[in-house]
Amino acid sequence: MGPGLIEVWMLYYPIFLKGLVGTLKYAAIAVFFGTLLGCFIAILHLSKNKIINAIAVVYVNVLRGTPLLVQMYIAYFFLPMAFPVMNALSKEQYVILSLILNSSAYVSEIIRGGITSVDKGQTEAARSLGMSSKNCMMQIIMPQAVKNILPSLANEYIAMIKETSLAGTFMCYELMYTRTLLANKFLMWQPLFIIAGIYLVVTLVLSFFVKLLEKRLAASD
């Protein structure tokens, strides 16, 4: 069996903590840029132009309908081969890219829901004042949409924390990658439970804050 969990933790906790930092970093990058890109996709999705709309629908369906792991393999092995220009990116950046793209598809659906949840009268009022459609979207609709979807976005961040475990497959230093590191030291089972425990604590704590956020937002209405 080898050493116990506590012993392994005491010996190697800097490695786990470094992994956790990596995990939170990847999740934050994926959700931040995924949100920016997701806003853009959501607006395309809401376009009345059929072609633009179709592009967004295909984008979202492909990225949500295929496993992230497959997307990562494609980003990691296929993209540098198919588009040599993109060799400017490091291997890690390809993995991050696939996380961002994947996240953008999920976030765009959340944002689209947020935008359509804003009363149509808001758009009508803004446009009747002579506000351009761009200003109406950025100044009137988006701020209200974002407030409506903050809890969903936060939950997406929590989900993304778990998704980033796949990045360890490509030797990106995150929590799951610590298993590979410690397996080299013949620690086969202990890291798995420590890693699972860390994920659980982080997601439970963050979920608790999302609940608080939801209450605060509900109170401000």
Binding site: D119, G121, E124, S128, L129, G130, M131, S132, Q139, K147
Partner: peptide, 27 residues
């Protein structure tokens, strides 16, 4: 062409003052 709606459609995320100033300032 000013328009006033049955359901007001004031902008809930902006202060009363900003509701009025936003469009003249932007447009």
């Amino acid at each position: 062409i000013g328009m006033v709606f049955q359901h007001f459609n004031v902008f809930p995320h902006l202060t009363v003052l900003r509701n009025i100033t936003i469009t003249p300032m932007l447009e």
